[in-house]
Design a protein around this nucleic acid. Structure first.
Lengths: 123, 123
DNA sequence: CGCTATTAATTAACATGTGAATTAATTATT
DNA sequence: AATAATTAATTCACATGTTAATTAATAGCG
């Protein structure tokens, strides 16, 4: 999504990092595999992205005491700040896209993509 | 397309390299920018891919004598051989995909993607 | 003709995609 | 309990995506 990238350019984060923040903001703290699936990222990609985002202070990583293989990832206030600053503009961009394509085609596209999404139960 | 990648695994080429071969086989020799657009690749990506494929003997690169900035890219017999060996199986995979999704949704998807493709005049 | 602007392609730097190998912790089996 | 199998995550190696800077050749213009 070029317009989303353009919006994010001034924040210094990528589309994928934006997706990570959005998922964390929506679902709360969660382990890596859940987050990877929800953000449509492969595990090795998430590993790298998480390290970067931790260094930027956007998220925190912590070991799960129940199962020390597992890692819990959470958004920081700095990360939440980016969400808060950009969420309206992002919604506007999506709405503009929907208008340009037409509501019908847009909904049909989302449905079909959901069917094809391997991270979605409907697949 | 995971099944396409799986099919290509034994040939040692990637999906993008497969697209390059297909475009060259369909349209014949052409310059880099035309090829990049038809194969849905960014120019810097094509530069790297072309170098790799030349080293593998799949394509040839030659300077245009009219305009020495331009480069003409053509498929070799080795490249054509890969196309010939795999084109039927690829068609089968696409047909299987179409069946699984349903003809109607499949056609609607292609139409919408064509509308959204910036390399397509309809965009 | 000489200079500037434009264009085709490459290079650079960093981020992600992808599949395979590896590590560390937990679970299952006997 | 000891060992094997499984699971969560990381690491590796290579390929592509993405934007900006750079290079080389051509076109335009005074």
């Amino acid at each position: 999504m070029p317009p989303i990238r353009e919006m994010l350019a001034e924040t210094g984060i990528t589309e994928q990092q934006w997706r990570v923040l959005r998922v964390l903001a929506e679902y709360g703290p969660q382990n890596s595999s859940t987050l990877a699936s929800r953000a449509s990222l492969l595990f090795p990609s998430l590993t790298r992205i998480a390290r970067t985002m931790q260094q930027k202070g956007l998220i925190t990583l912590s070991r799960d005491d129940e199962d020390r293989r597992r890692q819990t990832i959470a958004i920081t206030s700095l990360g939440q700040q980016i969400i808060d600053e950009k969420v309206d503009q992002a919604a506007q961009i999506v709405e503009g896209f929907r208008q340009k394509l037409g509501a019908e085609k847009y909904e049909a596209l989302l449905d079909t993509l959901a069917l094809l999404d391997p991270n979605n139960s409907e697949g």
